[in-house]
Amino acid sequence: MVTHSNLHLKPGDRGMAVADFWRVVDGKIVEHWDVIQEAPEKSANDNTMF
């Protein structure tokens, strides 16, 4: 299972890109990994993180 989120800790901030990964076995979460990166002020290309 995977989620990709735009997390804002304060109103008006650029936010952070958060990806969470879970491995589920028999309906139970057995592992979890996450990756967090602050959203850049300027994107390196025309695609945004979201």
Rank of each mutant, 00 (worst) to 15 (best):
R23Y: 05
V30P: 00
R23G: 04
M16K: 12
E31N: 05
F21P: 02
H8P: 01
S5T: 15
D20E: 15
D13F: 08
D20M: 13
H8F: 14
P11T: 10
G15T: 01
N6T: 06
V24Y: 06
W22R: 12
D26I: 04
M16Y: 10
V25K: 13
L9A: 15
H8S: 06
L9N: 11
L7K: 11
T3D: 11
N6K: 15
L9V: 15
D26L: 07
G12H: 01
F21G: 10
D26H: 14
A19Y: 01
K10S: 15
H4C: 12
H8V: 09
R23S: 08
I29H: 01
H4L: 12
N6C: 12
E31A: 08
D13G: 04
V18T: 04
E31C: 01
M16G: 09
H32N: 03
R14K: 09
E31H: 07
H32L: 01
H4I: 12
H4F: 07
A17C: 11
R14W: 08
V18S: 04
D20Q: 14
V25T: 13
S5D: 14
R14Y: 05
I29Q: 02
V18A: 02
F21N: 07
K10W: 01
V25N: 10
D13C: 10
D26C: 03
V24K: 03
V18I: 01
L9T: 14
D13N: 04
L9F: 14
H8Y: 11
D26V: 07
F21V: 15
L7R: 10
L7N: 08
L9Y: 09
S5E: 12
G27K: 02
V30N: 00
S5C: 06
D26R: 08
V24D: 04
R14A: 15
I29W: 00
K10I: 15
L7P: 00
G15H: 00
A17W: 01
V18W: 02
G12T: 01
A17I: 06
A19F: 05
T3R: 13
V24P: 02
D20H: 06
V18E: 05
A19K: 13
W22P: 00
A17H: 06
D13Q: 05
N6Y: 04
D20C: 08
V18H: 07
S5Y: 04
E31T: 02
H32Q: 05
D13P: 01
G15S: 03
E31S: 05
V24Q: 03
M16C: 11
I29D: 02
V18Q: 05
D26N: 13
D26S: 10
A19P: 03
S5G: 09
V18N: 04
A17Q: 10
D20W: 00
G12R: 03
W22N: 07
D13E: 06
S5N: 14
K28T: 07
D13R: 03
E31V: 02
R14N: 03
I29M: 03
T3N: 13
D20A: 13
